[in-house]
Deep mutational scan, measured.
Amino acid sequence: MTEYKLVVVGAGGVGKSALTIQLIQNHFVDEYDPTIEDSYRKQVVIDGETCLLDILDTAGQEEYSAMRDQYMRTGEGFLCVFAINNTKSFEDIHHYREQIKRVKDSEDVPMVLVGNKCDLPSRTVDTKQAQDLARSYGIPFIETSAKTRQGVDDAFYTLVREIRKHKEKMSKDGKKKKKKSKTKCVIM
């Protein structure tokens, strides 16, 4: 069974824990209790493949930012979460993405942009803004509501699919490099 290491990042209060708990335990946590770091595991079937999701729910508070490099190193894919009623959390996505790329030393890291709290009427981040940002990053965008469960499975499952595509691409690139290195030079 394939294991996928997913990391949920975003500013404090955007609903990272609520999304994760909704996926794992099928219930909505409405009281806000700032996370330092929590880890969850769940076995699911995605596109006919049974897999184990190892999900790291991270601290959004700035005082825990020193811990970010460590979990970013171990993560295979990242859910970059903002709240649709919090423009600052949307603007912060850029910083999370840049930090992930720096730590992973790669421009090509599996990510999904997630606009959470889409059940709320007080939207300050337009869907088109988020779609445009995701398009500019070359990553999928999904709106979710941890409260109603809308888009929750889709967000995590899409990230797994992005990781699969990335692994497939990397193995193809690896095979191309191996083929090239088999060419021999004969000096007579």
Rank of each mutant, 00 (worst) to 15 (best):
T20V: 09
G48R: 11
Y40V: 06
Y64H: 12
L19C: 13
I46E: 08
G48K: 12
C51S: 10
Q43H: 07
G12I: 04
R41H: 08
Q61H: 13
S39R: 01
A59E: 05
L6N: 02
Q43F: 04
I46S: 07
L23F: 14
Q61A: 14
Q22T: 08
E63R: 02
G10A: 09
Q25S: 11
E31V: 07
S39E: 08
C51I: 05
K42S: 10
L6K: 00
A11W: 07
H27M: 12
V9G: 05
A18C: 08
D54S: 04
F28M: 05
Y64E: 15
Q22I: 01
K5I: 03
E37T: 02
F28S: 03
G48P: 12
F28V: 03
V7M: 08
V14M: 13
L23K: 08
D57Q: 02
V29Y: 08
V7I: 07
P34M: 07
G60F: 04
E3Y: 09
N26M: 14
L23T: 15
D47H: 08
D57I: 01
G48Q: 12
G13A: 12
Q25L: 09
G48W: 05
G10Y: 00
T50F: 04
I46M: 10
L56E: 03
Q22A: 07
D54M: 01
L19N: 13
N26C: 14
Y4W: 06
E31K: 01
Q22Y: 03
S39L: 11
E62R: 06
V7W: 13
V8T: 07
T35W: 00
I24R: 04
T20H: 03
S17C: 04
D47T: 06
D47R: 06
L6Y: 05
V7T: 10
D30A: 10
I21E: 13
I36V: 02
R41N: 08
D54Y: 08
H27A: 12
Y32A: 03
V7S: 09
T58K: 03
V29H: 13
L23Y: 14
A11Q: 09
T2R: 12
G60E: 08
P34T: 02
T58Y: 14
I36F: 11
V14C: 14
D38I: 01
Y40L: 06
K42A: 11
L6D: 01
Y32P: 02
V44S: 11
T58L: 03
L52H: 14
V9H: 07
